[in-house]
Design a binder for these strands. Sequence first.
DNA 1: TATAATTCGGACATTTTTATCCTAATTAAT
DNA 2: ATTAATTAGGATAAAAATGTCCGAATTATA
Lengths: 148, 148
Amino acid sequence: MLYQKGNMFSKACEYGIKSMIYIQSNHDDSRKICLNEIAEAINSPMAFTAKILQQLKRSGLLVSTIGAKGGFQIKNNKPITIKEIVLAIDGDGFFSKCVLGLKVCSSANPCPAHEAYKLIKENMIKDLLDLELDEFTKNIKNKTIALK
Amino acid sequence: MLYQKGNMFSKACEYGIKSMIYIQSNHDDSRKICLNEIAEAINSPMAFTAKILQQLKRSGLLVSTIGAKGGFQIKNNKPITIKEIVLAIDGDGFFSKCVLGLKVCSSANPCPAHEAYKLIKENMIKDLLDLELDEFTKNIKNKTIALK
DNA sequence: TATAATTCGGACATTTTTATCCTAATTAAT
DNA sequence: ATTAATTAGGATAAAAATGTCCGAATTATA
């Protein structure tokens, strides 16, 4: 093939999702979770991960405290869906863009794959994007699920 | 967001799929369909599209003839699924890669989204990837479906 | 046989995505 | 007060994807 592709999400988004899952699964009111620990846990480049955490913060999903013993926490300890993370990092392209890249593509003016993609989106939303983080954290502590 | 993302397929793959749909929907034993016409029809950069057509040829989906009145045709005029095109251009990443980017991720050793992604893949395969090109060409000639 | 239309492939350029480096600011704890 | 741990963000670099340019080879047809 020309290039190797075929990822639903960008690397940035993968790191974002894994970061959020890690933060959620290690939640503890008595401490914050720092960048270093997150990047180690999810096996991601630290400086790059820092940018992503900033973005998640700007989007209102995380809060952070600076300085020693500082780190990140989920804002208000609120339930968060995968969709919110994807929107924060990759934007709404997944939901809004034509799967074949047409500038305008709607049910009134569809590309050949429009209806098929509609079904696919519905299933993705139901099976993954609308799920909340704690759906994914259940089995992390007992090591049946891996983040790296 | 950091960057704008959220595409199921690469641009190259989008052009590949649209090229194949165009070629199929304009099939006529008496002529070949040339690059120029394809790129015009699907609104894609010509030189880039040329590379993609070469790749589709190398993968055995197209045949071409050089020279005046040359062009491309679907090999053996055989039914082709979207999956074959995706495999030719984007490779099998969509099918083989972990949705969260883990190096190893299997049902024995799953990432947190493994099961969810399995469902999603099954639906994508059923609703789009296993469909044959002529599913997408039906309404092109009467202009209810657009390629650009 | 000359010309125009075409594929083919190499080299290069641009843009986007991913990743790194560095310095400043803040805070806890000693 | 100093130090170490930490977030924050700007600048830059590297890699990947997308896109362009050009010249060579081939073939139909005038």
